[in-house]
């Protein structure tokens, strides 16, 4: 019953948001650059327009997924390394913080000339994902209680066995939180990377629509970016639910 109530509240919120957007655009309260939602849907109603956006959203989606994958892997590897070799941890942590502190926008041109235009979106997506996953993994690995750790030591576990059978399973909820954060960061990173002069992707559309004052296209691209993030979020939530049903 509570679920239904929460769900209907959620729907009501979405409806209010859509209505507010529509009315604001229709009345022109925020100027000509804020179109009503219906005109964006009108724009998308034409097959070539829709195809253009779907194709480029697909490119961004692939970039984001690759970035999420690489970023997660790197973050996880660094966290595991930091756990297995405790001496390395302070250095790794400083390194990760340092990389995260670099403004990605400054890294863009650097990446273009090093890894090339094609790989820049994936590289930036990777960089934006790895830190949040690294932090989530480190905090997850340390989720066990002192007693659980003592018991593990007394049973004579090696560091690896400790990680494999105690610390990693204990980290799972945090890892999924890290993935969720990573999903939105990956889309953002991919778009930013495409912005710097990739051949295709939502980032490219955003830049060209902005420069050519194609308001509907600009908003459509933003909408598709949002849809990508939501899709990623929903996918990870579903995997999480399936995982917890199966193992927890």
């Amino acid at each position: 019953m509570n679920d239904i109530l929460a769900y209907s509240r959620w729907c009501l919120g979405v409806v209010i948001l859509i209505l507010a957007w529509e009315i604001t655009g229709n009345r022109g309260w925020l100027g000509s650059t804020w179109p009503p939602l219906s005109s964006i849907f009108d724009y998308l109603n034409s097959r070539p327009n829709l195809e253009l956006l779907v194709r480029n959203a697909g490119v961004t989606g692939v970039n984001a997924v690759l970035g999420l994958l690489f970023g997660t892997l790197i973050g996880a590897l660094l966290a595991i390394l930091g756990f297995l070799i405790p001496r390395l941890y302070p250095g790794l942590s400083t390194f990760a913080t340092f990389v995260n502190a670099l403004p990605l926008i400054a890294l863009g041109p650097l990446l273009i000339i090093t890894v090339g235009e094609g790989a820049t979106p994936v590289a930036i997506a990777t960089l934006s994902v790895f830190f949040s996953f690294f932090v989530a993994a480190i905090s997850g690995i340390n989720q066990t209680t002192a007693i659980q750790r003592d018991v593990t030591i007394v049973f004579g576990a090696s560091r690896w066995k400790k990680l494999r059978f105690v610390q990693l399973p204990a980290a799972v909820p945090r890892l999924f939180d890290g993935l969720k954060l990573g999903a939105s960061a990956a889309v953002l990173g991919a778009i930013l990377g495409e912005w710097f002069g990739s051949g295709s992707g939502l980032g490219v559309i955003l830049v060209s629509a902005m420069q050519n004052f194609q308001i509907e296209l600009l908003w459509s691209a933003a909408l598709f970016g949002t849809l990508l993030t939501i899709t990623g979020f929903v996918c990870i939530s579903l995997i999480r639910i399936a995982f917890f049903r199966r193992y927890l």
Binding site: I147, D150, V151, I153, V154, F155, G156
Partner: peptide
């Protein structure tokens, strides 16, 4: 401990 000959309950 390394020989896994200890049991513990707290």
């Amino acid at each position: 401990i390394a020989k896994q000959r200890v049991g513990m309950a707290m």
